[in-house]
Design a protein around this nucleic acid. Structure first.
Lengths: 236, 236
DNA sequence: CAACCGAAAGTTGTTGACAACATACCAACG
DNA sequence: CGTTGGTATGTTGTCAACAACTTTCGGTTG
């Protein structure tokens, strides 16, 4: 029915639903879709040029991932993460990543794991030297994904993929202020401890790593709130 | 179209999709739907008396939960859990429940937690005395759900709800053979250790608890395989 | 003027039909 | 006899229209 679209049909190697899912997820984590805003199915459908079916499917997937909240018969919304949510995300991450570390060491996969992990730390160092904070943040996350991947536990991986998305959600956009000089070093320490088989040491560093992150984030949210604090200004 | 269903319409307090989801989940975990079998959308739709939409939605949710596997353009199947899957489920459970215990003790919610936990242990003891092994199994699972609930972490709870479903899936139907005489006692020990604030002790008991469960299950799967052997066809 | 009732608008929930894809089967050909 | 090609079938993927629900806004009533 759409003449110009006929040439662009491109064999649906991936389904529309999965395409919409990915694009929506990207928009959510990069902040294009602001927390608290409602997502209309028809609106999204028209904007993506598809019907409501695939959009509905995509929304549902993201709800399951925790990247959207659904209220029956009312709509789906981009969640607003409170400080407690941020803490909770890192509680979940610690649970998953600690288990991954234990599993890696117990399964004697430390060498294979270190190989992949070291690569990301190196990339982080280079990005840090170039003061490309966005890249630093991305490699940081990729490091942790690689860590859980190395655990060879499908369920740990599955759960972690959703939590890491939520992490991106509460990270929003990184600024230079969020950079901590010991951040890259901590990753090296985790690798080193794992290589030595010092499980407790690695877990301790990981915990500190997360505590610092939570502190940074809640501190930022406080200053953000103060900065916006219109006190009667922007009422719509 | 379904005459007898017409009287049961009942205000759609819950949506069809959620109803189908629950009923399908129940059928999967209780073994009505045998591992390896394919689920046809149209077949399910007619059997539930609804259209393919809600069914499709329910299937997708269960896929996300790990209770079903989907192959693009081919269909959804009830997963067959290997011994490695069983081990993995318990790796995931240990990760989540360990974090829950740590969180409870760190947050000083041990008294509130013990209250609810003790109740389920008592129920387990009664069921054990009555030799009602199915009830023992159910209270066992409810104990662990209550444990994670007490952590007050939404994400831990969310992740655990899917893993506990998978546990039900690999438990299948419990028999007296699966009963271990120290099973109930271990739950008491966990409670006790938590009350004393002995984190490491509680975690150690939990780990042993799971190791025993895995051993029992893989042992059973071995004998089952020997018993069935024929691979006789459910050929419709 | 306040409180209540009812219609209207906009949303999600559901439906049945159509299209695309993957597979299995069967015939024709080398 | 093995292989290849086309077709038939059953599946999922997508669509547009319809129905039900929730909220909002306006009028009516006390």
């Amino acid at each position: 029915m759409n003449p110009e679209a006929a040439s662009v049909v491109t064999i649906p190697r991936a389904t529309f639903a999965s395409i919409v899912t990915e694009r929506l997820r990207a928009s959510i984590v990069d902040g294009s879709l602001k927390p608290g805003s409602q997502l209309s199915e028809v609106e999204l459908a028209t904007s993506f040029g598809v019907s409501r079916g695939p959009v509905r499917e995509a929304l549902q997937r993201l709800v399951q991932e925790g990247l959207l909240q659904s209220e029956a018969h009312r709509g789906v919304f981009v969640p607003v993460l409170t400080d407690e949510d941020v803490r909770d995300v890192y509680v979940a991450r610690e649970a998953l990543e600690s288990a991954a570390i234990r599993s890696i060491i117990a399964g004697e996969r430390t060498v294979a794991a270190s190989e992949s992990l070291d690569r990301f730390v190196t990339l982080m160092e280079q990005a840090e030297a170039a003061e490309d904070w966005e890249a630093v943040g991305n490699f940081d996350l990729e490091f942790h994904v690689a860590l859980v991947d190395a655990s060879a536990s499908d369920r740990l991986k599955r759960m972690f993929s959703t939590v890491i998305s939520e992490t991106r959600l509460c990270l929003g956009v990184l600024t230079a202020d969020d950079a901590r000089d010991d951040l890259v070093q901590e990753h090296r320490l985790i690798c080193a401890a794992m290589k030595e088989g010092e499980t407790e040491k690695a877990l301790a560093v990981l915990k500190k790593h997360f505590d610092d992150a939570v502190a940074t984030l809640s501190n930022r949210s406080r200053t953000d709130a103060a900065a916006v604090d219109g006190r009667g200004g922007p009422h719509e």
